[in-house]
Structures are given as structure tokens and as C-alpha cells.
Write a protein that binds this DNA or RNA. Structure first.
Lengths: 142, 142
DNA sequence: ATGGCTGCAAACGTTTTGCACTTTT
DNA sequence: AAAAGTGCAAAACGTTTGCAGCCAT
């Protein structure tokens, strides 16, 4: 668990419980955004008694702290990912296999243009793409 | 109800029931994306016996036909909007009052660049902004 | 020791499903 | 008459809440 996270939690008087630590580590170790159940399942491998409720409460807490981002691209559940050092990135989601690809290095210039053109005080944004990943695209065209 | 929609439904052997018509009209008459319950409430003003289930089933159907887009920006429920002639637009959502502003005339050039840079076969995308609308921004800074 | 955190069970709101009946074509 | 669609009731699902007890600080 990264030291910056520890510091942020401590400075907010948030206790470093075992459950919390593991939940954060699960997020740190995941290459993809995870649903609360996924996080729960991975957490219970380390701390078997962890409750789903605890996962939900911690995700909400971490989201409030700006450490975690909640994504709404899936019909069944929200997905959560750690916000990386360089800010958040965008995703391409495969409608066939559910694979999520990170889209790195996207120019935020365009985003800024939009932000400037609206009267909203913009705090956050989502940009998601849906379609078929390379593998599924090939399989389905056979 | 627009004639193109009637034609699309007919060519797909989908019946033009009263409920369906009203649901579509509710969407046509709304300036903002609506939650299923909203659509239900407006529909029952015309057809009091309409069931929420019917609303859900029709939204799913219309989404499948590509007439309606489902948006996931709200924690409590999905929101639905008719896809306009010129394709879909993007939204700015106020976290305080829930107001949704349409962002028209956004260059899709940037989107295309991203689409071309990924191996995904992109079929759709979402771009949403979150923050405070002008009114709420002012009120909260008092 | 005290405030924050957890587990459990129960509740909640949204969405889905099965089935008998109705409506459109 | 056939096919599609609806209403109703019940269930399923993800998520939230209340509360008693537990744990990190």
C-alpha cells in the first residue's frame, strides 16, 4: 500500500484497519476496474470474515477522499478503480467478453475546451467507449 | 411521434400500442434524460393503467433498436433519452440539483482520433461531465 | 478510553421474470 | 387467428441502513 495513501488516511483520522488495507491492495493489484463483489471475493481470500457491507462502505469512503473512481459502464453494477498518480484515464469496454482496456495518453486538451465552453463548474468527467475488443471482433466475424 | 420512428417499428414488426406511443412521446417531449419512474409517471397521466414493467420493457426494446440511449450518470437509476437525428450528444450533470445540460456542437474529431488509436471496434461512447451548474455554484459560494 | 469501524440482519429501490389475459396486425 | 404486448405479483439484484460489539489509535 502506497505511503501517500497511508498519509492521506492518517491525516483524515481514518483508521488503517486490516479490511481497509486489503481492499486498497486489491484495487492496487488489479489491472481492471472491479465491481464491489469482485473486491469482496478477493478480500475474503486474505481476510475470510470480511463483509460485503464493509467493502461498500470503504469504497464510498475512498471515493469521497478522491482515491477511487466509480465507473458506471456496466448494467449490473458499478465498477471501481484506483485513481492513478497521473489522474484518471479512460476506458474501452468490450460488450462481448467484458474486457476493459485502458486508454492512456489521451490528450486532455479537447476536454478542457469543452469545460471552458460550458457554464458548469466541472469537477470530473467520464469518457468511455463500448464495442468489441480485437479478440471478440475476430471471433464474431468467423 | 415522428414518422421515421413509426416506420422503423413497423419494419421490425413491432406493434404500435398506445403505451408504446405515449412512452416514445414522453421521451420526445422531454428536454432532459429521464429515469424509468419519470417516464412511468408521465405516461400514466395519459394512460393511467400503464405499468412500470411496460416502461422497462419498452425502454429495453427501444434501446435495442438504437432509438434510445441509456445513461449511467446517476447513482440511483439509469436515465434514458431519445437519440437525436444528429447522433447523440454529451451531458453535464449537476451534483447538487441534478440538472442535466446538453453539450451540443462538440467536435467529434477528438473522439475519432481515440477510436482510431485503439484496437477496439468501437460502437458507442459516453462523455459526461460532473460538477455544479451555474445556479448551484453561485448558491454554494455564498 | 473513545471514536471509528465491522459484521450481521433486515430494509430499500430498481429492475427482471412468469404467467394469464389483452391488443394489434 | 396469430403474434406481440400488457398488467400483476413475486422475485432477484445491488446497495444501504441500524445497531451491537470490536479494534486501532
Amino acid at each position: 500500500m502506497k505511503i501517500e495513501i497511508v498519509n492521506l488516511l492518517e491525516s483524515n483520522k481514518i483508521k488503517l484497519t486490516n479490511e481497509r488495507k486489503v481492499i486498497i491492495e486489491v484495487l492496487e493489484n488489479s489491472l481492471l476496474p472491479l465491481a464491489p463483489v469482485d473486491i469482496y471475493l478477493r478480500t475474503t481470500k486474505v481476510l475470510p470474515k470480511t463483509n460485503l457491507t464493509t467493502v461498500y462502505r470503504n469504497l464510498e469512503l475512498l471515493e469521497g477522499l478522491g482515491l477511487v473512481k466509480r465507473l458506471g459502464f456496466n448494467r449490473n453494477s458499478y465498477y471501481y478503480e484506483l485513481i492513478s498518480d497521473r489522474g484518471h484515464h479512460h476506458h474501452a469496454v468490450c460488450r462481448s467478453c467484458g474486457k476493459v482496456e485502458d486508454l492512456e495518453n489521451i490528450s486532455e486538451k479537447f476536454i478542457k475546451e469543452i469545460v471552458n465552453s460550458t457554464k458548469f463548474k466541472v469537477e470530473d468527467h467520464n469518457l468511455e467507449f463500448f464495442g468489441l475488443c480485437q479478440t471478440c471482433s475476430k471471433e464474431l466475424s468467423l
